[in-house]
Amino acid sequence: MAGRTVTRAQLSEAVYQEVGLSRNESAELVETVLNEISDALTRGEMVKISSFGSFAVRKKGKRIGRNPKTGEEVPISPRRVLVFRASHVLKDQINANLTKLRPAKTSAL
């Protein structure tokens, strides 16, 4: 696996290449997109991006956890967690590329 990391910089660059905005404004737009998504999620809304995936907020109830090192019981208070479900389009694109890269195991048999 390539193992490189893409950050805001590359996303801004992609925006910059797409429309005739300055680099600064492109970077701001990337930030605004992330903020709008975060705001909606914080309001408890689900965010659905077609052909990419959806982000949803799930409420978790109180439970008793354990410190795995000491075995001590620790209460875990109710909290909200974010779950991402990838769309089929995204899953298919990833598999079309990555799974093909490896030599087919079946041919070796």
Partner: peptide
């Protein structure tokens, strides 16, 4: 992601 890269925001 299709290249196997991570995206860290």
């Amino acid at each position: 992601l299709a290249r196997g890269d991570r995206v860290e925001l």
